[in-house]
């Protein structure tokens, strides 16, 4: 087996007496489309916080491209190639859309580049995402869907090998979901591995090649979308007894 892009080994995280994650392992391959699902409070958010470095896990390891990143800070992991978008959009609201992208282009980049070069790259990403016409708008005043696109665009501007998309579609209409999904497929075609955390089941099932289901901090199922749909444990977790 070739080395996975992301290798999470027996990760545990507690908050006080509450066990948010209990020895969960998972791996994501290069360029893989990976779905992470589970009911509310199952540990999805904790898991991606531990992968991106916002939280430090107590036991277990996070390996990225073979390198142990368990103790690294979020900005160091971003530089190595792990980028994330936020469920509730967090734009740099005093800046324009273009300037928002220039921050990761400047700070997450492996080498320094000129401002004009960064702006060109930012424009290219905005065109890919479909936000080019708003490049010079103030990011604080965008619509919900454009905010979500900005989140994805800014994550892409870090030029990641792994993109974590945290509920990028919550609260969007059907056609908007399709639009975001379409963008994620485009990004994936460029070789970026994607972890999708999502409540919109239809989208996860369509997007993912492989899915892991969490419940109460433990991994209860893993497999292709078809296998997951037909797994009685998953059904029980979602519907209750």
């Amino acid at each position: 087996m070739t080395q996975p892009l992301l290798d999470v080994q027996e990760l545990s995280k507690h908050f006080g007496g509450f066990t948010a994650l209990d020895q969960v392992s998972l791996h994501v391959g290069k360029g893989e489309r990976f779905g992470l699902i589970g009911p509310n409070g199952s540990g999805k958010t904790t898991m991606i916080n531990c992968i991106s470095g916002a939280l430090l896990n107590e036991s277990g390891r996070v390996l990225f491209q073979g390198q142990d990143v368990t103790r690294l800070k979020p900005h160091q992991r971003t530089r190595l190639g792990i980028a994330r978008s936020f469920q509730l959009p967090r734009p740099f609201s005093s800046m324009t859309v273009l300037e928002n992208l220039c921050i990761p282009l400047e700070y997450a980049a492996k080498e320094r580049s000129r401002l004009a070069r960064r702006q060109e790259e930012a424009m290219a990403i905005l065109e890919l995402i479909g936000l080019a016409d708003k490049a010079h708008d103030h990011s604080g005043g965008l619509t919900q869907i454009d905010m979500r696109k900005l989140e994805l665009a800014r994550a892409m501007a870090a030029k990641p090998d792994l993109l974590i998309s945290d509920e990028a579609m919550a609260g969007l209409s059907g056609s908007e979901v399709d639009e975001i999904l379409d963008r994620l497929f485009t990004l994936n075609e460029r070789g970026v591995g994607v972890i999708m955390i999502e409540h919109v089941m239809k989208a996860v099932m369509r997007f993912s090649q492989r899915i892991v289901v969490l419940d109460a901090g433990a991994k209860i199922a893993e497999g292709t979308p078809d296998e997951i749909v037909n797994n009685p444990l998953v059904e029980k977790a979602y519907l209750g007894e």
Binding site: A54, P74, H75, T78, R90, F92, A108
Partner: peptide, 15 residues
């Protein structure tokens, strides 16, 4: 400026 606007997002953008 990125920190001022949103510190968590700034950190995740590599700052």
């Amino acid at each position: 400026a990125a920190i001022r606007d949103d510190e968590v997002a700034a950190e995740c953008a590599g700052v």
